[in-house]
Design a protein around this nucleic acid. Structure first.
Lengths: 243, 243
DNA sequence: GGGTGTGAAGCTATTCACAGCC
DNA sequence: GGCTGTGAATAGCTTCACACCC
């Protein structure tokens, strides 16, 4: 890759001068939710301290994050709730409507289709797809479930932007490839499987058993902490207790 | 905090000499899954290159991660699949059984209760709880749903280690506080709400709409990339195209 | 020869602390 | 006086590249 094409690629990935760090992007939805909460309470202006508290982060991080989007606050005063909310919405792209398809209408697919928060502003579940011919035609969350054969047709006709994989693990890779072939470049995977995508396609995963395992890792260490002390640490403990 | 008590605290949080980085902990479940896949295929020995490919990470990262656990490979050969799998299982704490309670048996709670991969080795859904008295008594996934009033009793009697919150957003904080008061220190939150926990309690969250919003952010930039070029970037593009 | 384990380098993210502006 | 916005400092994570061992 030449120097030119490299810097071009970087530039093309964001419309903001220096690009917003990925860690910041991941927190924008959190700020948006906090601002919505405050707006509902009738709060018109908020300091970084208060907003950070509501969002569950520290204020320095919040200010740094917001500074990547622009200079939307007023020194000595704070941020105007509605104004900031609008700016973040626009930055994320929630001012337009994103059509979502869910593939795999088992227990989880059902729950996702019916999940209200999932269909919050900006997203619209446009189609449900399942590989089981018996399930096709069934109505779920006000939509008729369609058969997998129709995937490509559904994606192009309904202008789907985001695919959600809620199939069993063994079907995930194949479904993903068909989504990509159909032109989808944003995929959310709930199947407990490693799924590979070509460059240019964004894949995020939500993995329930991974989350549990991370909790278990820490839980194990909490319970065993006293027993896990080395001799050296025990000496320190004794010192600390003595004062 | 004195120097002694500080270093003691750090030491007590892990049983491994230098502590395993959080980013590494988050990937261990991934490696475990990859090893299971390989074991099912009858693979006995694997190189870091192959294992990394199966897990969807690069090999340098994999080797570094594994090095925090110990020296489990053989130079010039690779890793023994079963042996490494056992080591990681033990590290995560899957050699013991963790009892899980799910609070909120709506669409999502139902799906979680029935989700097979969720109840994979090491975890056991031990109780289901809902605030709706009409739902109490109903049978879901082979368990009788119990009423919220019984939460504390259930937690202590069944020796629950992990709480899963699948309630509406408005109930999440109160449920969380009751779980903590009942002695639970590991919580997985599915409710789209900011939940605060005291120090010492691990809270992880799975947020469907956040994930969608992150995808939307990137999707927006892909579509608009050509239009979002600055004059300077356009010049570079022209150069790159010319060769 | 081949592949692990790991210091060192490079990169990204967080936190500090204060200049600058209202 | 108060609070934002941000360089500078720090911490944490990833990647490199090769010594070391089988």
């Amino acid at each position: 890759m030449t120097r030119h094409s490299r810097s071009l690629t970087q530039a093309a990935q964001s419309s903001v001068p220096r690009g917003v760090p990925e860690a910041t992007v991941a927190r924008l939805p959190l700020y948006l939710r906090a601002l919505t909460t405050l707006a509902e309470r009738g709060v018109a202006t908020v300091s970084s301290e208060e907003l950070a508290e509501t969002a569950g982060v520290n204020s320095a991080k919040l200010r740094k994050d917001l500074s990547y989007l622009g200079s939307y606050g007023t020194r000595g005063v704070g941020y105007e709730v509605d104004f900031l909310r609008h700016q973040i919405s626009r930055e994320i792209g929630l001012t337009q409507d994103w059509a979502v398809v869910i593939i795999g209408i088992g227990n989880l697919g059902h729950a996702l289709a019916n999940y209200g928060g999932f269909a919050s502003r900006g997203f619209r579940i446009a189609a449900l797809i399942d590989a089981d011919p018996n399930r096709a035609g069934e109505e779920v969350a006000g939509l008729k479930v369609r058969h997998s054969d129709e995937l490509e047709k559904v994606v192009s006709e309904l202008n789907i932007a985001i695919g959600v994989i809620a199939t069993p693990a063994r079907a995930a890779q194949a479904v993903c490839e068909r989504l990509v072939a159909a032109g989808i470049t944003s995929i959310l995977n709930f199947a407990p499987a490693v799924v590979q995508v070509p460059p240019g396609v964004d894949l995020r995963k939500v993995d329930l058993s991974t989350e549990l395992q991370i909790l278990a890792y820490h839980e194990q260490r909490k319970n065993g902490s006293a027993l896990a002390l080395t001799a050296e640490q025990a000496v320190e403990l004794a010192k600390a207790v003595r004062g």
